[in-house]
Design a protein around this nucleic acid. Structure first.
Lengths: 356, 356
DNA sequence: TTGAAAGCGCTACCAA
DNA sequence: TTGGTAGCGCTTTCAA
């Protein structure tokens, strides 16, 4: 809240100071600083000497104004502390740095109105381009961004309208998880999704339902969408495993739900087979180990940034959508969990009870 | 690598356009846009109408140049993808946003020369202030930053010279871990530290050695500094547990070493008691559960940003150093691991063999 | 209450 | 090879 007032800082020499001291024009100093050709070596040497003596450093605000661009790109995500987004951030920053740009990051905290405000600020700042993981249910291309002509790449979720977009293969990821489970003898698989407000949550739910049908898995189909907590997941799992036709495996819709589910399973002492969307560092070390659908956030961030820089170089082709592949990482097969094996074989004696 | 060339963007109206259209001066438009007093209501209304009709949005580059500040702060860390740093980043960004500032983040990748380059770029950009987790072994306050007069707060590690610094209570953290282990019957405790190039790694090593003496723990004192991998940790642990007087517990120097140690223990099937520096989300769900020394990265980032904004408000007091407390989070005591209990009681039959 | 002029630091344009 | 001038979009100063 507290607005911050200006503060006196040490005054540093400008190009004008250097020019006066070296008896050249400002333009010649500019040429030397920017390594432009057409300066006599001895003139350049004299200018460089003065630059070093005065400790001159070019101030970018002037050139940003003059050039109409800032060598900055903006990244807007939901929450920088979430590993999925921080990996994206690290990747985008790396791509930006390679191209002499810097990165402004902002968390929209899942709020479409905050996202609009943040985008307006970034556009006002004249960032050269934007990478945005859009909040809310299938929004449109931001009007302010559109009016400003700032190139933008949407990541992880699409928006209405023409815009470059990088998505993850949600359908393929879910399919690979279910085929894996079925191959290991599971027939009764539940899906724990995130808040259907999220496009990705809806996509994964639809993929689950579709594949459930394709594979002719028995009814009832078990789907529970969030928002979820450990408590809600516990209740859902309890319901799915009591009564007849208990579930033997669960697929979780993202890394948060996976963690809730692990805690719920621990609390209930009910080790179902588990495949989680999103990889996480300790997936092999938790109990039970978790097979995951890995969508590479680093690759997604890198791809988004690369597409953005293609636009910054002036590419005018129609907007593209890239779907990034996922990869199933199977874990825990080598160390079958006795309880899980028992649970699975109790339901389907013919199955090997192999954990995924 | 590839430099990016300018790109034509849609030209948006400036204050001059609005002024011409509304038959007022540019200054009056500026007054209206900035909600300055002293504009007749009907004049303001006319200006606002034109602003809306033309879709005017103030461009910040002009004011940044005029004001000599950019309402931006810079954050330099080692690796944005590391949870410790991404939590710091999220906290700093939140504090910045509250004060109408934006955040530029950059990874120095642990390289002092990259850090210098990044700092020079940020200073050239005229960021209003900096939060830096310094790379390298006890560097000095950056010369470019010093010359520019840009306020800077160092985080997690100190530098030579006068500068605001936020540290974690490394000594207290290690002490709490060792007292906890000793209270639970452990006498032979090893320390697995990170590369002693890191100041924090050295601090924690010295704390371990000091407390080891204070508590009169038996020789030999086991300390192994990194850089570590799963392989080196495996070797070290094997050495510490074979032969006489085997170690029964290990303290790890940061989150990376903790993960390596968990993998090594899993590989060796040797579940020692483990206390790790840095909390991590799944510490209670891994096998064995991990008691941790929690240093709150969010609180550290918040504190650093707050100190920075105190300086931006003009506070001229001498540089301060704040040491943030740590908190021991005990896990797994409720689920003693049979093998660990056996290992502990085999060494010290009188101990309860309770796991930490 | 309003406006004209100057200028923040730099680069583009054109002339010398 | 070098320099002068204009101007990027805004805010400050001072005058009307």
């Amino acid at each position: 809240m507290t607005p911050v007032s200006p503060r006196a800082t040490a005054t540093r020499p400008t190009m004008a100071d250097v020019a006066a001291e070296a008896n050249v024009s400002v333009k010649t100093v500019s040429r030397v600083v920017n390594h432009e050709p057409g300066v006599r070596p001895d003139t350049a040497a004299r200018v460089i000497a003065v630059i070093e003596r005065l400790g001159f450093r070019r101030v970018d605000t002037g050139r940003h104004l003059r050039l109409g661009r800032t060598y900055t790109i903006g990244l807007v995500v939901e929450d920088l502390a979430n590993p999925f987004y921080s990996q994206i951030g690290a990747a985008v920053e790396r791509e930006a740095r390679i191209r002499q740009h810097q990165l402004i990051t902002a968390s929209a905290e899942g709020s479409p109105s905050r996202e609009r405000a943040v985008l307006a600020e970034l556009v006002a700042r004249r960032v050269d381009g934007l990478v945005v993981v859009p909040a809310g249910a299938t929004p449109s291309v931001d009007a302010d961004v559109l009016a400003s002509g700032t190139p933008i790449v949407y990541l992880d979720r699409p928006v209405r309208g023409q815009a470059d977009t990088i998505l993850s293969d949600n359908h393929g990821g879910i399919r690979s998880a279910m085929e894996h489970l079925v191959a290991h003898g599971h027939r009764r698989v539940g899906f724990l999704g995130d808040d259907p407000e999220f496009w990705t949550a809806r996509q994964r739910r639809e993929a689950f339902a579709g594949v459930h049908g394709d594979l002719h898995l028995p009814d009832p189909m078990r789907i529970s969408m969030g928002p979820h907590t450990v408590a809600t997941v516990s209740d859902v799992i309890t319901g799915w495993t009591s009564g007849k036709d208990p579930v033997t495996a669960v697929i979780t819709g993202n890394n948060r739900i996976t963690v809730h589910t692990l805690r719920a399973m621990r609390r209930l002492d009910l080790p179902l087979a588990l495949v989680g969307y999103d990889d996480f560092e300790l997936a092999d070390l938790v109990d039970p180990p978790v097979t995951v659908i890995h969508q590479d956030p680093t690759a997604m961030g890198q791809k988004a940034a690369q597409q953005l820089f293609v636009r910054l170089l002036g590419e005018e082709a129609p907007a593209t959508t890239v779907v990034m592949p996922t990869r199933l990482i199977v874990r825990g097969s080598g160390r079958p969990h006795p309880a899980a094996a028992a649970a699975v074989s109790a339901v389907r004696p013919e199955s090997g009870g192999q954990r995924v």
